[in-house]
Design a binder for these strands. Sequence first.
DNA 1: GTCTATATGTAGATAGAC
DNA 2: GTCTATCTACATATAGAC
Lengths: 221, 221
Amino acid sequence: MTKKTTAKQRLRAPSKRSLASRSRILDAAETVFARDGFEGAKVRDIAALAEVPLGLVNHHGGSKEALFREVVERRAEELARLRLEALAQAKGQGALDLTAILGCFFRPYLAKAAGSDPQWLAYARLVAMVSADPAWADVSTDLFDPTAQRFMDEICALYPKVSRAVVAEGFVYSVAALLAFLTSEWRIAALASQSDAQGSVEGLVAFCAAGCAARIAQAET
Amino acid sequence: MTKKTTAKQRLRAPSKRSLASRSRILDAAETVFARDGFEGAKVRDIAALAEVPLGLVNHHGGSKEALFREVVERRAEELARLRLEALAQAKGQGALDLTAILGCFFRPYLAKAAGSDPQWLAYARLVAMVSADPAWADVSTDLFDPTAQRFMDEICALYPKVSRAVVAEGFVYSVAALLAFLTSEWRIAALASQSDAQGSVEGLVAFCAAGCAARIAQAET
DNA sequence: GTCTATATGTAGATAGAC
DNA sequence: GTCTATCTACATATAGAC
């Protein structure tokens, strides 16, 4: 041995081909997990979609659960950063009201989902799964709660007299509406009896801001 | 043969023991499906919880999918009836506003979930699963949409100038909040940093009514 | 109706050649 | 890193005795 290495240190950088495989596996996993759920997804389907042999999925992603966590983590950091940047920028331009705060939370996600990368829409379903299932509570705690707490701080500062529980209630309802917006277009269209029905960002923000305001006003009396 | 029978007619009434087994199987299926999801649930776990042999589950419930549908259907009819009754009764007492309409939709469910039968809480998770997953769209269409349409009719009558799509949007967000209320108490508590945090029915209704009103007002301008 | 034993398929994971 | 072949486990569903 010419060189000492610690256990976890990589001996050399991954090759270009390796990185491409890895990226394709993560993209495929995201799509399949979003479509079929964690239990319903099959590692074989992920391998087929990524066009890599079955063995490579485990080689790169580890166990199915580790792969799922990796997929969720991948975009969570970028999302949190975009949200906090939007908040910081809005604060620099003057005092914030409820609509502005929720807008900073919603818009970065919606911009990504509506933008060029269609994988962000699949990701919305993953977030909905994680948020709804107590089995993934640790993922929520690690990846999503810190940002949520930061936004709730802003709302609490606006309404110093209401308890944090009331703000949390409104915030959870708002996130539920956001996820419904992203994942339930088919349902809105079915109920509206027309195929072109689609919610608007402004409509979503209006709904949530007014809802939160009403819930807070109720608590203040 | 002393008597002609059609193919689907039962030759004799099920025994008491059979009915008890069947009921225990449906209850157990409801609990396990709610806890683990459709794919994650194992027929073996359902049999174990119901304390019946594995074979009986298929005997009574048919395939796993048929069992799931049966479990969802079981309470859907009662729920729809309670909701429509509440609406009819409220209409008898004078003109309805948005808060009253949503109240008639929410309260029957919440009363059941908060009442004596703890299975209704598990059922809420099933409804959330069905509502969120396009794979179960036919179940939504058959069991839930007719009632939803009826309530949307009332809202549309209140605001004749707004499109049905806008009402559908607000309604879907409201149902998302209702399901969050029923299934995400753990999440609200986590964000509020206190264990006793729990939403109130009045808070939920206030949130949704104000949200819908704001969304509709936005569309009217 | 009830229960045991089993048929059949398929899942996740890995060993080992290249 | 890549890929094939396979191991092991466990899933659903059913056949058939009682």
